[in-house]
Design a protein around this nucleic acid. Structure first.
Lengths: 156, 156
DNA sequence: AGATTATTGACCTTTCCTGACCTTCTATTA
DNA sequence: TAATAGAAGGTCAGGAAAGGTCAATAATCT
């Protein structure tokens, strides 16, 4: 509980809590400097503690002026996103089921009409009939990405 | 967001916003002077930030009385953006280009932030790396579907 | 002891910035 | 009028400044 990774995790979560933006931006090397560790230790913490499953999204940019951005994922209304997401893990999602799912999100006002139409048009996948062999698996995977995006705290 | 290239980009976009002509004219060396950098840095900014995908055109002239002209490309009115966009998409669409195009839609307020994030998460997902042979073609096809959906009259 | 988790360091990729050198255009001048 | 000097902008390669990856080792847990 007192190891380095845990302390860095704690520190980051603390400032993430405080922010109203829903995200924080930082420099990897700088943070590593504060904790007097090697920079890749920061990646270890991000990879193991700030995953989608745990409610975070990490974006980054290299080169001069590079940065790390950690985004908080909210629960949506009563944790709907996560609930649906758990059901999707490792699953195949048929076109019918995905449509039903999107309709439910629409009912619960978690997405707008336009968003729903967008998602459907993509997941219906008329484009790739034949081209892609396991479209149902792809659909499940895309659905997870969609739900993750919808729950981003920095988009409200 | 604090590096030189970003600041120059910001500055140029700001004066482009203000102008009513839809373009600005400037001297490379003069601008370089203002930002206290080498002139070729200006080219770097123009090459990486003011591309066609991002909605800009750059013209220039050398020699005495030379200049740079940055033109903001509007997407036109009344559904004309559809045509322009489709042209830009073509048959293959890389991840970087698709992100640029979505940002453009956002700039033009044709999509919301959430919609933009949604589209990006789907089109730039690492999901299918490897699985699908021609992801760039699929991306182009999906992007066109998305445009069609966005212009549906029944979704206003 | 064996398995899992943490830590480090060497090496890689991306993005940015600079400077040396190149090309084009205008103006002047022999 | 032809040559040329000067005033733009263009190109490209190299170095610097980020962050990313991976495998080897150390520490901790069961």
């Amino acid at each position: 509980m007192g190891n380095l990774a845990d302390r860095i995790e704690e520190y980051l979560k603390q400032i993430l809590e405080k922010t109203t933006e829903g995200y924080i931006v930082l420099q990897r090397s700088e943070l590593a400097g504060e904790f007097e560790c090697v920079p890749s230790q920061i990646n270890y913490v991000l990879d193991t503690r700030f995953t989608v499953e745990r409610g975070y999204l990490v974006e980054s940019r290299r080169g001069g002026g590079g940065y790390l951005r950690i985004i908080r994922l909210g629960l949506g209304i009563e944790g709907q996103y996560q609930q649906v997401m758990r059901q999707l893990i490792g699953e195949h999602l048929s076109r019918d089921r995905s449509n039903a799912l999107v309709n439910r999100l629409l009912d619960e006002e978690l997405v707008t009409i336009r968003e729903a139409a967008l998602i459907k048009s993509i997941l219906s996948g008329n484009n790739l009939a034949g081209e892609f062999r396991d479209w149902d698996t792809l659909r499940a995977s895309l659905m997870k990405d969609i739900l993750t995006t919808l729950s981003r705290d920095d988009l409200v």
